[in-house]
Design a protein around this nucleic acid. Structure first.
Lengths: 189, 189
DNA sequence: ACCTGAACACCGTTCAAGT
DNA sequence: ACCTGAACACCGTTCAAGT
C-alpha cells in the first residue's frame, strides 16, 4: 500500500471521528488501530495533531467549495437554492448525528493551532460568500450590498446554531423546525 | 476552610475553564492546583468528571433562571428586552472570549454523561420559554402560539450560532453585526 | 469528614532503530 | 520512504492510608 493511501485512510478516519466526537476526542492510538499501523507511524504522516487538524480543515474547505460550485443555482429560485444549502448541514446530522467540521472545531477553538483557525476562516468565508451571492442576485444599491454581506454571515451563524441545538438532542426534527422558523421570520429565502 | 468553600472554589474555577476552553480541557490536576488541593481530593467532592460537569450545568441553569427573572420585562418594549437578552451572551465574549456553557457543552455533546445532557436541556427550555413569552405578548391565535414556540427555539439557536462565529474569530464586532442582521431580517424584535 | 501518595491504563510526542 | 518499540510527561480514576 502506498503512503498516499495510508495518508488518505488516516484523514478519512480522523474526519469521521472529529465530526462525530470532536477534535479533542481524536486519539492517535485509536486512529492508528483503525488504519492498521502504530500510533508513532501516524506522526510520520502528520507530525503533530495540529498538522492533522489543519489538513482536515483544508480538505473540508476544498470539498465544500467543490460541492457548492456543483449546485445548480442559475436555473433555480432562491428558496430552492437555500434548501440545497441547508440540506448539506441536515445530511451531517442524518449521518450518525455528526456535525459540520467548522462548527465543532469553532467550538473547540481554544485547542486549535493557528493553521487550523486560518482554515476555519477560509471555510466560513467560502460559505458566507456563496450565501451572499445567493441572497443578493437582484441587489444593486451599495448600502443593501453591505447589508447582504452581514445577512449572509447571520444566515451561516444561524444554521450552525440550528445544527448545534438539533445535535444536542439528537433530533433532526428540531433542525427542520428551526430552519423553517428562519424562513417564516424572513431570515432566509 | 469548610468543605462547602472548597466545593464552591472547585466549581467556580471549573466553570471559568470550561467556558474558556471547553469541558475536555478541564483537568482535575490543574483544577486541584488552582484550588490548592491534590487531584485525588477533587474526586472526594465530585467522584467523576461527569459529576462535576452535571453540577456545573445545574448551577448554570439556576443562575440563568435567577438572572432572567430579574430582568424587567414588564415595563419595557420587546426590542429593549431582547437587547438585555443578547447582551448576556455578549458579556461572555467580552469576558476573555468565553462562551455560553450550554453552547460549548452542546458542541462537546458526545463526551457528556446523561446527567449533563439533561441539565443542558433544562437550560435550553428555560431560555426558549423566556423568549417565547417575550415574543408572544400579544398573540392569542393558537397557530401563532405554536409558531412562537418554534421561533423562540430559532432565536436561541441563532444567538448561540452568533456567539460561536464571533468567538471563533475573537471579534465582538461580528457578534454585534450578526445580531443586528437578525433584527433587520425580522427574526428578533 | 476531608485529604493524600501511589498505582493504573490512557494520551500526544520524540527518537533511535529497524526495513 | 515508511514503520516501530520504548520512553517521556500528561490525563481521569481508584484505593488504601492518613488526620
Amino acid at each position: 500500500m502506498s503512503s498516499a493511501d495510508t495518508r488518505e485512510k488516516i484523514m478519512s478516519a480522523a474526519r469521521a471521528t472529529v465530526q462525530a466526537r470532536g477534535y479533542n476526542a481524536l486519539s492517535f492510538r485509536d486512529l492508528a488501530e483503525e488504519v492498521g499501523i502504530k500510533s508513532a507511524s501516524v506522526h510520520y504522516h502528520f507530525p503533530t495533531k495540529g498538522d492533522l487538524g489543519a489538513a482536515l480543515a483544508k480538505r473540508y474547505t476544498e470539498d465544500g467549495a467543490t460541492y457548492l460550485s456543483s449546485l445548480d443555482t442559475a436555473r433555480k429560485d432562491a428558496r430552492s437554492c437555500m434548501k440545497q444549502y441547508t440540506d448539506i448541514f441536515r445530511a451531517a446530522l442524518v449521518n450518525d448525528n455528526r456535525m459540520c467540521l467548522w462548527g465543532i472545531m469553532a467550538a473547540e477553538h481554544e485547542h486549535m493551532p493557528p493553521e487550523v483557525l486560518e482554515e476555519l476562516n477560509r471555510f466560513k468565508a467560502l460559505n458566507v460568500g456563496w450565501l451572499e451571492k445567493l441572497i443578493s442576485v437582484d441587489i444593486t444599491d451599495a448600502k443593501d450590498r453591505k447589508q447582504a454581506r452581514r445577512r449572509a454571515l447571520g444566515i451561516f451563524a444561524a444554521i450552525e446554531g440550528a445544527q448545534l441545538i438539533a445535535r444536542s438532542q439528537n433530533d433532526i426534527a428540531i433542525y427542520d423546525q428551526v430552519i423553517e422558523s428562519y424562513r417564516l421570520a424572513g431570515l432566509i429565502p
